[in-house]
Simulated scan of single mutants.
Amino acid sequence: MSDGSVRTGRLAGIRVVSLAGTLPGPVAARRLTREGADVVRVEGPGGDILRAVAPALVDDLTRDQETLQLNLKDAAGQDRLAELLDGAHVLLTSSRPAALARLGLTPESVAQRWPRLAWVAIVGATGDRAEEAGHDLTYQAEAGLLASGTELPRVLLADLSCAERVVTEVVLSLREVELHGTGGYAEVGLIESARDLGEPLRHGLTGPGGVLGGGSPSYNIYPARSGRVALAALEPHFWTRTQELLDVEGTHEALAEAFLERDAQEWEAWGAEHDVPVVAVR
């Protein structure tokens, strides 16, 4: 840490150098920081482009991390990066392999100089598609996660799920070093992350008419007297209790009529009181 204090946590003593900007890499790095890892964030001379549009988010993501701005295209910047990697356990990147290769960072060169370093690379897609350009929107579109096909997603699902995979891959790579003494190179793909999120949809669970897609009255959104409520009474005991307390038959129509009797916030308080999973839609 830049203030010289000693970190504690399950990853205390692990030093991470992150070249991964925008969102997936910083979200993963924050998770590692919160688990006790010492993270050094390396930005280009112009800083992270995310700071221009969401500075408060960047501040939150990089809290308790050291941030350096290096020009990795010149010798001095590359030498400083090498010094950082000399003492690191993990390297995070999110640039395309060809761009990293121009900086002298290839799986072969890194393994030769830093054999115990665990390099986790965020790419658009693993393998032959690693050079393809894209962002969360294109990955969600390809994975079929855009509900209407016309509205932009409110949650960056590919980015955030990829970040979780990165944390998992870091822990697995550190375990590999512990067991076998060598680090290695692992890719985490954004499109693969998005596709796995779409698995329930592909199996009909969340699509139109599916059990979690509006087909079941026990798992649905209903208008209230003001606002809307989300009901998720899937388990039999929750579903039976909901019908008994509302004194209704378990149909969409009956529930829709019942929920019009109170405001959404009132229903949320009612649900908490009676142990029924219903909340106001924010």
Rank of each mutant, 00 (worst) to 15 (best):
L11S: 02
E187P: 05
D159C: 01
R228S: 14
R102L: 15
T67G: 11
T240D: 02
L172W: 03
R41P: 06
E176P: 03
G210A: 03
H89N: 12
H237S: 05
R96D: 12
L234D: 04
Q140G: 07
G215P: 08
Q65V: 08
G77M: 06
W114N: 03
V278Q: 07
T33H: 11
G189Y: 01
G204Q: 09
R262C: 06
P153F: 01
T168W: 02
T251M: 11
E43T: 04
E268C: 01
G9S: 13
P236T: 00
G213W: 03
A233I: 00
A232S: 14
D86K: 12
V177L: 07
Q243A: 11
D3E: 05
R63C: 11
G189K: 10
L19C: 05
D60T: 13
G87P: 03
R7M: 15
E142D: 14
P277C: 09
S173W: 06
R10N: 13
Q243D: 09
R34F: 11
L255F: 05
H252R: 02
W119Q: 00
W239V: 05
P208G: 06
V16L: 05
S5R: 07
C162E: 08
S18V: 09
R202S: 12
L23N: 02
A269V: 11
H180D: 13
A224T: 10
S5D: 08
A99M: 09
Y185H: 10
E273D: 15
A29F: 05
V120E: 03
L105W: 00
R175T: 09
R15N: 04
G9Q: 09
A269R: 08
T251Q: 13
S5W: 00
E176M: 12
A233K: 09
V276H: 10
V278L: 08
D263C: 04
L85Q: 08
L68N: 06
H252M: 09
H89F: 08
G127Q: 12
H180G: 14
E66A: 04
R102D: 13
R51G: 12
E244W: 13
V276D: 07
P55V: 06
V110P: 08
G271R: 00
G207K: 14
A29Y: 00
A121H: 10
G144L: 07
A141T: 03
D263H: 14
S2W: 13
V211D: 12
V171F: 02
V16R: 02
T182E: 14
P277I: 02
L81P: 00
T168C: 12
R202L: 15
V170S: 09
G47T: 10
G9D: 02
L117K: 06
D128F: 04
V177D: 11
A125Q: 12
W114S: 08
P24H: 00
Q78M: 10
E235T: 08
G13M: 07
T206N: 09
L212V: 07
L92T: 03
G87W: 06
T126D: 11
G184W: 04
A29C: 04
L245T: 04
D196N: 14
P115C: 10
V6Q: 15
G44H: 04
G36W: 01
L156D: 09
I49P: 15
E83Q: 13
L205Q: 15
R15E: 06
